[in-house]
Amino acid sequence: MDTIHDLGGMQGFGAVEVDEPEEPFHHDWEARMWAIARNARAADWTIDWWRHIRERIAPVDYLSRPYFDSWMQTHAAGFITSGVFTLEEIVSGHTDDRRPPPPAENLAQVLARARREAHRFEAPAPAPARFAPGERVRAVSTPPLGRDHHTRLPRYVRGRTGTIHAHWGCHVFADLAARGIHEGQHVYSVRFTANALWGEEADPRDCVHLDLWESYLEPA
């Protein structure tokens, strides 16, 4: 979907604020939100549905609210659309449907769980890989499911020609996973020269690599 999240190549944002304190969290509420996200979710969410909910935050909020506030909004909207909480419960912070908490986990248990959460995304291949390293490919101009759905094909590469750099195997296809459907599809690292993406004014020494699923690509 061509929403505000697809920022690659957009102009006008100004300088990057490079001076920033080193500590991992800059506010307590950021740390709490991160921890909530590690523990509380609806059973039917997928990572790509969650990403898509975040993409649907109103553009003005997406650009102006703090980063972890967008996580809060994504969790809130996800809970409401999954029927886990009502809008009123999200706003009040209270529910009449109270349930006993699970046993508390200490640091060692949490660190062990973090290690177990190295989720893998490989999925069985429906067919042999269509492309091989070195082949020229063009990114399609319209994402495979159309323009009204989640996709991981950024606007700035659509219609551009690049070269297969590597075949990473077969991974769950994000566009369908955002609709709760788990299907494997080959994924490739594709190298685009800066000139192919941005024209002659770009530096001819440079290139951009993207990881793209097979249905984003056609032979060039």
Binding site: R32, W34, A35, I36, R38, N39, A40, V84, F85, T95, D97, R98, R99, P100, P101, P102, P103, A104, E105, N106, L107, Q109, V110
Partner: peptide
Amino acid sequence: RGMVAPETLDAW
């Protein structure tokens, strides 16, 4: 709702 204990959030 019983999704997580507060101490677990502290540990994360």
